[in-house]
């Protein structure tokens, strides 16, 4: 696996520890424990945001989706039986919520110029807080734009695997598809990005 993806027994143990911690927090949350909610939110908010952002290309929209996803979690928590890990369950909710949101936004947004404008962070203070070079910003904008031109299914698989660091098996679980399909979607998504980002990555 590439790029910081989990490897080996130590990583497996860490993942199991996380899963046990989440299971405990879920049980507390079912009893209405607000601190358990805070902890679950704090542990998973960045990853949820990462998935949503890469599927939507807008920070504000991604935050909306994170909020809605956690509301779905709260409304469905009593029925969550732990058949999958909380993380897998949450990522599945976030992925579907982001894709739903994208369709809703597409219906609402008459032309693509608005969507393009949405790629820019709306909060100038936050933007100032980001100490990043112009080159990084350009590359991110180029990747955002390229990802928006990858088909929805392929992009979801790529985002979960290549960017969020899930294994092929985990992506298959989250999306409810076979590992073979995951392989093919990730491959096709990267091939498409290779075409779209030809000038950026040589």
């Amino acid at each position: 696996m590439v790029g910081g993806r989990r490897q080996g027994d130590a990583a497996d143990e860490a993942a199991q520890r996380e899963a046990r911690r989440d299971a405990e927090l879920v049980e507390r949350l079912k009893k209405g424990d607000a601190k358990a909610l805070d902890e679950l939110f704090r542990h998973h908010r960045e990853a949820a945001y990462g998935i949503a952002y890469r599927l939507l290309g807008s920070r504000d929209d991604a935050l909306d989706v994170v909020q809605e996803s956690f509301i779905h979690v709260l409304r469905g928590i009593q029925a969550f039986r732990g058949q999958s890990s909380f993380r897998t369950w949450l990522y599945r909710i976030v992925t579907h919520a982001a894709l739903d949101y994208r369709r809703w936004r597409a219906l609402r947004t008459a032309d693509s110029l608005d969507a393009e404008a949405a790629l820019e962070p709306a909060d100038p203070a936050a933007q100032r807080a980001v100490e990043e070079g112009a080159a990084d910003r350009d590359l991110r904008a180029a990747i955002d734009k390229a990802l928006a031109n990858v088909s929805e299914k392929n992009r979801a698989a790529l985002v979960l695997f290549a960017i969020e660091g899930l294994s092929y098996k985990e992506v298959a679980d989250v999306l409810g598809i076979s590992i073979g399909t995951v392989m093919s979607r990730i491959f096709n998504a990267r091939q498409r990005l290779r075409e779209l980002l030809a000038s950026e990555i040589g």
């Binding site: 590439v2 790029g3 910081g4 939110f41 908010r45 945001y49 990462g50 952002y53 890469r54 920070r59 991604a62 935050l63 994170v66 909020q67 956690f70 962070p121 909060d123 203070a125 936050a126 933007q127 807080a129 980001v130 590359l139 991110r140 990747i143 790529l158 290549a162 960017i163 491959f187 990267r190 091939q191 990005l193 290779r194 980002l197 950026e200 990555i201 040589g202």
Partner: peptide, 25 residues
């Protein structure tokens, strides 16, 4: 090509979220 695209994606981070926005959520 697959590795090159992946390398670019590995360094791709979304814009950070200010703490007060997280607090609102």
């Amino acid at each position: 090509d697959q590795q090159r695209v992946q390398h670019v994606l590995d360094s791709f981070q979304p814009p950070p979220v200010p703490e007060h926005r997280w607090e609102q959520v």
